[in-house]
Design a binder for these strands. Structure first.
Length: 828
DNA sequence: GCAAGGTC
C-alpha cells in the first residue's frame, strides 16, 4: 500500500482527487479522514501533531526557578492523538510512504514529525514530494519525481521551536512571579509579541511627547462663467510649494490682502491623465487590510476566510504569494461567475480581448494568492459576514484581471496681486477595474473649465488656524503590515499575536492602545532582555536558521549559543527582581485607578467581584467599604478624562460595537439617586395579585429599565436603551395596556413603542442571529424556526425533530437532526 | 498555566 501524508485534511482530499482522477472515496478512522483509491491511502495531518515542551518536573511555576528552564531538557508529546494513531496504523500496512506537506520551512518540519511517526512502524522508503500549489499539473509532476526530506531545513524549524519556547517560557515565568501574577493573568513575553507590543508602546510615547504647533491656511472662493470653486493659498518655500504659514502675523497680512482683492487672474492650467492600476492579488496581509476597511478586525476577517476555505469557496487564506500560478486560467475562472450574483462584472470582463492578471512583488511556493474557486456558494448558504467577505475575495480577483482606470487631473493656479492660489481637480475618464471593485474611492473633484489668462472674481477668503497633529495610532491592519515589514510572525500567526495582546491585558480598544502594564513590561524587557523586545532577535534567528538549512551550522550549536545569551540575561535580572516586580504591580494598579475615595481618601479602583462582574471599590477595603456600581456589559477601561466635581477618571466600557463611555461612576450613581421612577402601568407578573406597577427606572450603574415597583419581591424587568431622553407617549398598546415610549437622542427620535412588544421583537431578532450562526441554517430558515417558537439554539437542541418538522414547511426532520448535530459540535 | 508555529 502507498501512503501519502499531507499537512491538512483539505490538501489530502484534493490530492487524492487529482491522483485518482476523481475516483477517491473517504473513510473515517478514529475520526480522521482517510482517502482511498486503488492501493493508495491519503491522510491529512492538522499542522504540527507533536509539540515541544518541558518535562513534567518543570510544570509548577512556584517550585521551579525560571532560570532552571534555560538549560532544561525538552520532550516532545503527541498533541493530536487521533491523527498520530491513524498515521501509525496506516504506516504499519504501508510499503511506500510519501510526505506531501506544504512546501516551506514549517512544512518540512511537520514532514519530519510525520517521518518519525511513520518510521516507528515502517522501515521501507519514505520520500518527499514538493509542489507550489495543489493543481493538477504541479501535483502530478511532483509525484512523478519524488525527492528526499530535507532534514537540515527541518532542523532550522526546530531551532526556532526551541529558542522561542525557552526564552518565552523562562522570561514569562520570571515576570509573572516577580509581579505576583500567577494563574490566568500572567505577564507574557515572546520573540514576536514583545516587539509588536513595543511598536504600539513606542507610538503611544511619541503621541504623548508630541508638542502641537499652530499654523494657518488660507482659502478663497473663486468664480467665473457662473461656476465657483475653492482655491488654496500657497507660496514658495526654498524651491518647494508650501501651504502652511507658521506666523500668525504673516497669515493675517495675507488674509487682508486676499480680502481686499476682487479679481484673480488664471496663471496656469495644467491637464494630465493618470493611470490607476488595478490592485495585485490578495495575500493574507492585503486581504486583512481590505476587510479591515469594511469594519472587520484581523481575527474576524481570518475566521470568516477560514470558514469559506473549508467550505471550498475560496483558496487557502494563509499565503504570502501575490502571483497567480501558471495554470490558473483567469478566463475560465471569470467564466464561472457568469449567471451568478457577479454576472455583470464577469460578463463585462469576458468582453475584453485579454485577461491579463496583475502581479505583486512576492512569489512563494506553498499556496496561491487568495482567490475564489469555481465552486460558487448560494447566497442563502452564507450569513451576511461570510457573504460580504466572499464578495470581497471575488471582486478582488475580478479586479486583478480588469483594466486600469484613467483619471484626468486638472491643476489651476491663479494670481491675486502678489499672492498665488491653486486648486486641484480630478475626473474619472475610464472606470476600468473600479467597475468590478467598488471598495476604493472614485470620488471626483470637479473644477470649472477655465483658461489661462482668464479673470475670475474673488468671492470670499477664509483664514483657518490649525494645529499639527501627533502621529496616528496603528490600526490592526497597519500593525500587521509593520510586523510583516520587520519579519515578525507569519501570515498564519500575525492576527493571532494581536489578539493575544488584547487577551493579556496589554492593549484595549480599536485602534489598540497600550495599558500601563504594557509600558511597564516593555520597560522592564528593554532594560534587561533587549533582544526579545526588538526585532533583532528575529533577524538573528533567521540568519541562524538559514545557516542550519544550508548545512553550515548545527542545530545544537545554535540553540546552545542562544541559551548562553539567555543565561546572561538572567544574570542581570537577578539583582533587580524586586524593583521590576514593584514597577509592574504599580502599573497594574494605575490601569485601574480612578481617583480618591470620598469616604476615606484612599484610592478608588476598578475591581472585579467573585461573580466576575466589575465595580468600583476602595483600595482601603476591608477598612473602607465604599463602592460604586459599573454597567454590566463590556470591560471597563479607565480614560484620561477626569470628572471635575469628583476628581475621578472617566470609565469606558469596551464591548465591540456596543462600546460606550460610562463617564464618572459617581455622577452616574448620583443621577440615579436623584431621579424618580416614572410609573407607566400595571406589572404583568404580579399586578393582579399584589398591585405591582411598572415604572421607568434609572439604576446607579447607569442602566435604565422598565421594572416592577415591588422589586426585589418581583424581579420583572425589560431593558431600555442607555442613552437619550425617554418620553412617554399617549397611545397605549392594546395588548399590554402600556404607553408607547419614544427615545430622543440626537436628531431623529426613536419610536421604541410598547416596551413589552419592543423587547419581544429584540429577542426574536437575537434568536434569528443565533440560529443563523449554526452551519447550514440560512436567514430564511432561521426566521421560519423563530416563527415556530424556537427562540434560541437551546430551544432547537431540545426540540423533537418530528414534531417540529410538522410545524415548519419545507424543513425535514432529518435536516433538523443534522442541525442539532452541528449545534452539538459547535458548542463542543 | 509559559512561545510561536502549524491547523479547525
Amino acid at each position: 500500500m502507498k501512503l501519502i501524508v499531507t499537512e491538512k485534511n483539505n490538501a489530502a482530499e484534493r490530492i487524492a482527487d487529482i491522483l485518482s482522477n476523481g475516483a477517491a472515496t473517504a473513510d473515517r478512522r478514529h475520526g480522521v479522514n482517510v482517502y482511498r483509491f486503488g492501493d493508495t491511502r491519503v491522510v491529512g495531518l492538522s499542522g504540527h501533531v507533536v509539540g515541544l515542551d518541558f518535562p513534567d518536573e518543570y510544570e509548577n511555576w512556584r517550585d521551579v526557578e525560571p532560570v532552571e528552564l534555560v538549560d532544561a531538557g525538552l520532550v516532545t508529546e503527541h498533541t493530536q492523538e487521533n491523527i498520530v494513531r491513524t498515521l501509525a496504523e496506516l504506516a504499519g500496512r504501508a510499503d511506500e510512504v510519501l510526505i506531501a506537506t506544504d512546501y516551506d520551512r514549517e512544512g518540512e518540519l511537520i514532514g519530519k514529525e510525520a517521518h518519525e511517526l511513520v518510521r516507528a512502524e515502517f522501515d521501507g522508503p519514505i520520500q518527499r514530494v514538493r509542489f507550489s500549489s495543489i493543481t493538477d499539473t504541479e501535483v502530478r509532476e511532483a509525484f512523478a519525481d519524488p525527492d528526499d526530506l530535507d532534514f537540515d531545513l527541518a532542523a532550522a524549524g526546530q531551532a526556532r521551536q526551541v529558542i522561542d519556547l525557552v526564552w518565552g517560557a523562562a522570561l514569562t515565568r520570571f515576570l509573572s512571579l516577580t509581579a505576583g501574577r500567577l494563574g490566568e493573568e500572567f505577564v507574557s513575553v515572546g520573540r514576536v509579541q514583545s516587539p509588536t507590543l513595543k511598536l504600539i508602546v513606542d507610538r503611544e510615547r511619541e503621541i504623548r511627547a508630541f508638542d502641537p504647533e499652530s499654523y494657518w491656511e488660507l482659502f478663497a472662493t473663486l468664480s467665473g462663467n457662473g461656476d465657483s470653486f475653492e482655491a488654496q493659498f500657497f507660496y514658495d518655500d526654498n524651491g518647494s510649494e508650501a501651504e502652511r504659514l507658521w506666523s500668525g502675523g504673516r497669515a493675517d497680512a495675507v488674509h487682508e490682502g486676499l480680502d481686499a482683492a476682487t479679481e484673480a487672474r488664471v496663471s496656469s492650467v495644467r491637464r494630465r491623465t493618470r493611470t490607476d492600476n488595478p490592485p495585485a492579488p490578495f495575500d493574507t496581509t492585503a486581504f486583512i487590510a481590505a476587510a479591515g476597511s469594511l469594519g472587520y478586525s484581523a481575527q474576524q476577517a481570518m475566521s470568516v476566510a477560514e470558514e469559506l476555505y473549508t467550505e471550498g469557496y475560496i483558496t487557502y487564506p494563509r499565503t504570502d504569494n501575490t502571483v497567480y500560478p501558471d495554470d490558473l486560467d483567469p478566463a475560465a475562472l471569470v467564466e464561472a461567475f457568469r449567471g451568478s450574483a457577479f454576472d455583470d462584472a464577469a460578463s463585462y470582463l469576458l468582453d475584453r480581448d485579454t485577461l491579463d492578471p496583475t502581479e505583486g512583488d512576492e512569489e512563494t511556493t506553498d499556496h496561491p494568492p487568495i482567490h475564489p474557486t469555481t465552486e460558487l456558494p448560494a447566497r442563502r448558504s452564507l450569513d451576511d459576514d461570510e457573504w460580504e467577505i466572499y464578495e470581497l475575495v471575488v471582486r478582488r480577483f475580478l479586479a486583478t484581471v480588469a483594466d486600469p482606470a484613467e483619471w484626468a487631473h486638472l491643476r489651476v493656479t491663479a494670481a491675486v496681486d502678489d499672492y498665488r492660489l491653486k486648486a486641484n481637480g480630478k475626473r474619472l475618464l475610464e472606470r476600468g477595474y473600479h467597475r468590478v471593485y467598488p471598495y476604493t474611492s472614485t470620488s471626483e473633484t470637479r473644477l470649472p473649465a477655465v483658461e489661462e489668462g482668464e479673470t475670475l472674481a474673488v468671492e470670499e477668503s477664509r483664514l483657518e488656524q490649525k494645529e499639527t497633529q501627533p502621529p496616528r495610532r496603528y490600526g490592526q491592519s497597519r500593525l500587521i503590515k509593520e510586523m510583516e515589514k520587520r519579519g515578525l510572525g507569519t501570515k498564519s500567526t500575525r492576527h493571532n499575536v494581536i489578539e493575544k495582546l488584547y487577551d493579556r491585558g496589554y492593549v484595549s480598544g480599536d485602534p489598540p492602545r497600550p495599558t500601563a502594564l504594557a509600558e511597564a513590561v516593555v520597560d522592564a524587557t528593554e532594560a534587561y532582555a533587549e533582544q526579545v523586545v526588538t526585532e533583532e532577535m528575529t533577524g538573528e534567528l533567521e540568519a541562524d536558521m538559514d545557516a542550519i538549512a544550508a548545512g553550515e551550522a548545527e542545530l545544537s550549536t545554535v540553540t546552545e549559543a542562544s541559551r548562553e545569551m539567555l543565561a546572561e540575561v538572567f544574570e542581570s535580572l537577578r539583582s533587580s527582581r524586586e524593583e521590576i516586580g514593584e514597577q509592574i504591580q504599580e502599573s497594574l494598579k494605575s490601569d485601574r485607578l480612578l481617583g480618591p475615595c470620598p469616604e476615606c481618601g484612599d484610592d478608588l479602583l476598578v475591581r472585579r467581584s467573585q461573580q466576575g462582574s466589575f465595580f468600583v471599590g476602595c483600595d482601603g477595603y476591608p477598612d473602607c467599604e465604599y463602592t460604586l456600581p459599573l454597567p454590566n456589559s463590556g470591560e471597563p477601561t479607565v480614560l484620561s478624562a477626569c470628572c471635575e466635581e469628583h476628581d475621578l477618571q472617566h470609565v469606558k466600557m469596551l464591548d465591540g460595537r456596543n462600546t460606550f463611555v460610562h463617564g464618572c461612576p459617581q455622577c452616574a450613581a448620583d443621577a440615579a439617586d436623584e431621579s424618580n421612577d416614572r410609573v407607566i402601568g400595571i406589572c404583568p407578573e404580579c399586578g393582579t395579585d399584589h398591585g405591582g406597577e411598572l415604572a421607568i427606572k434609572t439604576l446607579r450603574s447607569g442602566s435604565r429599565l422598565v421594572g416592577c415597583t415591588r422589586y426585589p419581591d418581583c424581579e420583572y424587568s425589560l431593558p431600555l436603551p442607555r442613552r437619550g431622553d425617554i418620553e412617554i407617549d399617549d397611545p397605549r398598546c392594546e395588548e399590554h395596556d402600556l404607553p408607547e415610549l419614544v427615545v430622543h437622542d440626537g436628531d431623529d427620535p426613536w419610536e421604541l413603542g410598547c416596551p413589552i412588544c419592543s423587547y419581544r421583537e429584540f429577542r426574536r431578532e437575537h434568536a434569528i442571529d443565533e440560529l443563523e450562526d449554526i452551519d447550514g441554517i440560512g436567514g430564511r430558515t432561521a426566521e421560519k424556526l423563530s416563527a415556530a417558537g424556537i427562540d434560541s439554539p437551546t430551544d432547537l437542541d431540545t426540540a423533537d425533530p418530528e414534531t417540529l418538522a410538522g410545524e415548519i414547511q419545507g424543513v425535514s426532520a432529518d435536516r433538523l437532526r443534522e442541525w442539532q448535530g452541528e449545534l452539538a459540535e459547535q458548542t463542543g
